[in-house]
Amino acid sequence: MEEFALKIRHLTKRYKDFALNDVSLELPAGSIMGLIGENGAGKSTLIKSVIGAVKPDAGEIEVLGCDNRSAGFTLKKEEIGVVLDEACFPAALTVRQVNRVMRDLFKNWEEKTFLDYAERFALPQNKAFQEFSRGMKMKLAIAAALSHRARLLILDEATSGLDPIVRDEVLDVFNEFTREESHSILISSHIVSDLEKICDYIAFLHKGELLFCEEKDLLLERYGLITLRRDAFEALDKRAVLSAHDTGYGVQALVRRELLPAGMKAERAAIESIIVAMAKEGKK
């Protein structure tokens, strides 16, 4: 087993009005990485570059130890399950037909697994899924991605647009998937809280730049939330403060714990507020 499920080095892709700029990150095998960023931050461009649907201007990408421009990458795709935002099977097909098609397209296609997921997700078997809701289409794509013994799942906005109950169900499935030590996931979303629970790593894209790619726990440890009187706040080292909000009765601030005066304790901050603060700041 390779050490990293995914390695991206200096990935650059320029469009007329947008550029993904020199992104490097590594996803250790066996872990889940959440790729966070607002709409248009470059998440889809990054993911499409990984699977080869977008050709980067510069940089290298290694997926499951295989350069994604090499001829061998086609074979590697047997081990990669992909769910793309909106892109899916032709909607004329029924679940049964998708099964029959995929049986021929993947060497390791597991019919039973697929049909079990279809049942678990309550997908009608004989209905062309053009009549499916977005959530159902997503579930179909997820079922397919999980049914050919993939070792890496690449999921673009796979949880957005799902109602909370379904989303939880789907996140559970992803969580189960990584019980296997060689299984890894790269999942993107613009909703942080969706991913916060299950991720080991958080990568944050902002306007085409990777602001950080960090262990989730480290982020939580490094940053904290404090509430204190205004004069006490003024006395703080300004470098410690990421963002502050004056409530009128005091100041609530997101801070770097290490720069706080000794003994001052900060509460646990939500990943979301850390990211929002960083996005506003626009730099690390």
């Binding site: 969580n175 990584t178 262990e215 989730k216």
Partner: peptide, 11 residues
């Protein structure tokens, strides 16, 4: 196993 059961990070 514990991480997955508790739904927290393996790390």
């Amino acid at each position: 196993g514990l991480a997955k059961d508790l739904r927290i990070s393996v790390i």
